[in-house]
């Protein structure tokens, strides 16, 4: 006895149902298409845009955002969200500025470790106390911002000797900012770890259906805590990029990166409901967001309108990428 499935032969299916498939494939490339369209549009609006100088500036600006977004993507893939990344990054800039004089070269790993530990604490709170990640990181954001204010004395902390973080301001091949290269390395490392190990399955399963993942013996709790650790470490690394550029740390230095980072993730097409997406998408998303940011003044829009833009693109991007079949209740 058998259980036939009403399946057409593959070849027939490919020709017979070309339409929706092409559509779906296009949605997959949406962030890349948007990126290209933006570059073309900006090049037309400002012929000076496609010069090496301004492209280098874009790459430098994009680097911290790429790292923040790529690292936080793991949490979104698990079905959660990390609202504390910008606050962690701000605090990390302060810590780095304070520690550099004492620890020298060790300050960089120490800051990344500290940021990762903050992520771990939030992850553990989320998993063990069963508080939604949204709430944990909202609380975390508020607490960490306050901590940053306290330890910095509510002011900018100048870096006198930045010799150990200056390497990020070098240029590879003379043109490509080192920070951008490092951001790409971070993205590639995370992507490779997902691609080559069972992590991808574990994270997707957790994001798509946590109960199914748990009942298949997936280490759901560890995976989630791990995602928070990576997200924290990413925020720490982004902080180092910021300090190397600005020669100082400040308690609100990275705060304006939260919305762009979330926008980068959703513009990239990673589903906010979890499961579907990738860090490459967030890379593309971060570039799109950066170009928009850089491009607004070029086309003559005052930068005060920037926040409106983030709001609009987040809502539009989520609308386009949301898997409605999975969402029964809109919270």
């Amino acid at each position: 006895m058998s259980t036939p499935v009403a399946l057409k032969p593959a070849a027939e299916a490919a020709t017979g149902d070309g339409g929706p498939r092409l559509g779906r494939r296009l949605t997959g490339f949406m962030p890349l298409i948007a990126l290209l369209a933006l570059v073309v549009a900006l090049a037309i609006a400002d012929p000076g845009f496609l010069t090496q100088r301004s492209l280098t500036a874009v790459a430098r600006t994009a680097a911290p955002l790429i790292v923040l977004a790529a690292a936080a993507t793991l949490i979104v893939l698990c079905g959660g969200i990390d609202l504390s990344i910008a606050a962690v990054a701000s605090l990390s800039t302060v810590l780095l500025a304070l520690w550099l004089p004492h620890l020298g070269g060790l300050a960089t790993p120490a800051v990344i470790l500290a940021a990762a530990s903050i992520g771990a604490v939030q992850g553990v709170a989320h998993v063990l106390l069963r508080i939604p990640s949204f709430i944990v990181t909202l609380g975390g954001m508020s607490i960490l911002s306050a901590v940053a204010l306290v330890v910095s004395g509510a002011g900018t902390v100048r870096v006198v000797d930045d010799s150990t973080v200056k390497w990020l301001e070098l240029y590879v091949g003379g043109y490509v900012p080192m920070s951008f290269v490092m951001a790409l390395v971070v993205v590639a490392l995370i992507a490779l770890a997902l691609r080559l190990t069972p992590l991808r399955s574990w994270i997707s399963a957790t994001g798509y259906s946590e109960s199914a993942a748990r009942l298949a013996g997936t280490p759901v709790d560890l995976v989630k805590i791990g995602a928070f650790v990576v997200s924290g470490a990413g925020a720490g690394f982004a902080a180092i990029m910021l300090v190397s550029r600005q020669f100082s740390g400040g308690p609100t230095m990275a705060d304006n990166l939260l919305l762009p980072a979330v926008a980068a993730i959703v513009v990239g097409g990673t589903a906010i409901t979890g499961g579907h997406g990738s860090v490459w998408r967030s890379l593309a998303g971060a570039l799109v967001v950066t170009l928009l940011r850089v491009g607004l003044p070029i086309v003559g829009v005052p930068s005060a309108y920037e926040q409106i833009l983030y709001g609009v693109i987040i809502v539009i991007a989520v609308t386009l990428t949301l898997d409605w079949s999975k969402v029964s209740i809109i919270k």
Binding site: S201, S204, A205, Y208, S209, S211, A212, L215, G275, H276
Partner: peptide, 9 residues
Amino acid sequence: KTEGMVGPM
């Protein structure tokens, strides 16, 4: 459908 399998995978 909800606990046994992960549909999109």
